[in-house]
Simulated scan of single mutants.
Amino acid sequence: MSTQLPPGVVRILPEGAPCPPKTLGLYRDYSCQGPGYGIGAGFDVDLTELPIPGGSMFKNVSSWVNLTDSDVKLIGRGERILRAGEKLEEPAGYNDTVERVAWV
C-alpha cells in the first residue's frame, strides 16, 4: 500500500494510536481501533482515497474524533455534523456509511 495520500491526510500509526493533535481522526473499528487516518481541518477528502487492507475507508469508518477547531460534515447516508472537539462512535444505523468529509 504505497499509495500517495491526499493533501492534509496522515496515516495513524501504529494502528489504534491516538489521533494527532489538530486533526480529524477516523478509524475502521469502534473505540478508535484498527487502521486510521488523520485529516487536517479544511481538507475535504473522498474516503476512497484512504486505503486499508482489502479496500478503503469508504463506507468503513466506525469511530471519529475531531481534535480540530472546526466542524466537519460526514457525508454518506445523508449529512451529519461532527462538532469541533467531539468524538463519535457510529450508531448501528450509520456505521460504515460515510463516503467523504467536507469542512463546514
Rank of each mutant, 00 (worst) to 15 (best):
D69C: 12
S70A: 15
I52Q: 03
A17M: 04
G34Q: 06
W103V: 04
I39A: 07
G8C: 07
T48Y: 00
F58L: 09
M1I: 13
Y30H: 13
V10W: 05
S63N: 05
G34D: 03
G40L: 14
N66S: 08
A102P: 00
C32M: 15
L74C: 03
P91G: 04
Y37H: 08
P51G: 10
Y37M: 07
P6F: 00
V101W: 03
P91L: 04
G25R: 07
R100W: 02
C19H: 01
V101H: 01
N95I: 11
A84N: 10
R11T: 13
T68K: 07
G78K: 04
E89Q: 11
G40I: 11
L26T: 01
T3E: 15
Y94A: 12
L24N: 04
Y27A: 03
G78P: 01
G93E: 10
L13V: 13
G40E: 15
I39F: 07
F43H: 15
V9M: 04
A92C: 00
E99H: 01
D71K: 01
G40R: 12
P51D: 08
R11V: 13
P20Y: 06
P14G: 09
D71F: 02
D96A: 04
P7R: 05
S2Q: 13
N60A: 14
Y30R: 15
E79F: 02
E86P: 00
E99C: 07
P91W: 04
G76Y: 07
A17K: 06
L47F: 12
L26K: 02
D46F: 00
V45Y: 00
L74D: 03
L13W: 06
S56Q: 01
E79S: 13
S70K: 15
N95H: 06
M1S: 13
A41F: 07
E86V: 05
L26Y: 01
K22W: 11
Y30D: 10
V72Y: 02
N60M: 14
G54V: 07
Q33K: 13
I39C: 05
G54T: 05
G40F: 11
S62I: 02
Y27C: 04
R77T: 13
R83Q: 12
P35V: 10
A41H: 08
I39V: 13
K59H: 12
V65E: 14
R83M: 10
G8L: 05
L47H: 03
G34R: 02
I52F: 02
W103I: 03
D71C: 06
K87N: 14
G36D: 09
S63A: 08
D29S: 08
G16S: 01
R83V: 10
G55Q: 07
K87T: 15
R11I: 08
C32P: 00
K22N: 14
T3C: 10
E79D: 12
P21R: 09
L13Y: 13
A84D: 10
V72Q: 02
S70D: 13
K59A: 11
G93T: 08
Y94K: 15
D29E: 11
K73C: 10
L47D: 01
R28Y: 13
Q4T: 12
G36K: 08
L47A: 04
I81N: 02
G93I: 03
L74K: 05
